[in-house]
Simulated assay, not measured.
Amino acid sequence: MGSLKLSLEAGAPKRLELTWGLFWKNFEVRFDGRPIGSAPDAAALKAGVEFRLPDGSALQVKLKQTLSVLRDGVPVPGSDGDPEQQMRSAGNLLYFLAALNGVLGVLGMVLTNDVLEQLGMGFGAVLFGAMLGVLGVFTHRRTRWAPAVAIGLYVLDSLLTFIDAAEAGTRPTGGLLMRAFIIFTLYRAFKASGTPAPSAQGGPGVSPQM
C-alpha cells in the first residue's frame, strides 16, 4: 500500500490524496476525502489517466520512472515533477552523502580497518563530505551551480573508481549504479533550478467551499 497527500498550491492544506495497493493496483484519487477517480492497475497509470477536480481543472497522473502528477499541465507542489521538490530531494541526498562520507572518514582516521582503508576513507573523505554539505545548502537555495558542481564531482569520482577497478581487475557494478542514481537525481535538480516553481506559475485555485 502507498499513499501521497498533496496541496494544489504551495503552502495550502493537503486536500488531494492518492492511494494505491501492491504493484499500483486499485489506484484512487480523493479530494477532501471524496473520491474523484480511480485506475485499476499500473498499465492504466503508465498510459496516463485524467481526473476532473471540483474547480474544473484537470488532474493528470502518469506512471513513468516515478509518479507524475500535473494540474492543467503544471506539476502539483510536492509531487515528483515539482521543481521545488526535486531541489529538496537533491539537497537532502547531498546532506546524507556528506554525513556518510564524514562519519566513514572519521572512522577511517581513528580505526585500523582494511575495508575502510580499501575504500579510501580518511581525511579526504571528511573533506569531500564537507564539500557535499556546502553544495547541499546551496542546492536547497535553488542555486543552479551547486548541483552542477556536485555532478562534476561524482562524474570524476566515478571515472576514477572505474579506472582503479579496471587496474585491479574487478567490476564495481554496484558502486557505479549508485553513482548513476546520484548523478540522475542531481541532474534533475540542475534542470529544475532553471524552472519556476508551480506556485510562481500561477493557476486556478480551489475554493475552500468545494
Rank of each mutant, 00 (worst) to 15 (best):
N101E: 12
G122N: 03
L93I: 06
D32R: 14
V126A: 03
A47N: 13
L93F: 09
L100A: 11
A99N: 09
S89W: 10
V110Q: 01
L53R: 06
D55K: 12
L59G: 08
G91L: 03
I36L: 15
S57M: 06
Q86K: 13
P35W: 05
E117L: 11
M87T: 13
M121G: 10
V106L: 13
G48L: 13
F123A: 14
L70V: 00
D32A: 07
L93E: 01
G122L: 07
P75L: 01
G102K: 02
L127R: 12
L127D: 08
G91V: 04
A125L: 11
V49P: 15
Y95G: 07
A130N: 06
G48A: 13
G37N: 12
A98R: 07
G81C: 12
D80F: 14
A42G: 14
P40R: 14
S57D: 11
F31I: 13
Q118P: 08
F123V: 10
A90L: 00
K62W: 06
G48Y: 13
G108C: 08
A58K: 15
F51N: 03
D114W: 08
D72I: 06
G108Y: 07
V61N: 04
I36A: 05
V69I: 09
A58H: 04
Q60T: 14
I36P: 13
V76G: 02
P75T: 04
D55L: 11
G124M: 11
S57V: 07
L116C: 02
N101H: 15
S57H: 13
E84H: 01
L119Y: 10
D80T: 09
L93H: 08
D114F: 12
A44W: 00
G108R: 05
D55Y: 14
V61M: 05
G37W: 07
Q86R: 13
D114R: 13
R71N: 08
F128R: 10
L97A: 10
Q118G: 14
P40E: 03
V69N: 01
N113C: 03
N92K: 10
F31Y: 10
F51S: 02
P83M: 01
G37S: 07
S89N: 11
T66C: 09
M109K: 00
G129M: 04
P83S: 02
Q86N: 07
L70S: 02
S57A: 15
L67V: 04
A125D: 00
N113L: 03
I36S: 01
G33T: 03
A90Q: 01
A47R: 15
P40S: 09
G37C: 05
E50P: 15
Q60N: 12
L127Q: 11
L111W: 10
A42V: 13
S79A: 04
A130D: 04
G48I: 12
P83K: 06
F128C: 10
L97P: 05
L104E: 09
R71T: 02
I36Y: 02
Q60R: 14
P54Y: 08
V106Q: 00
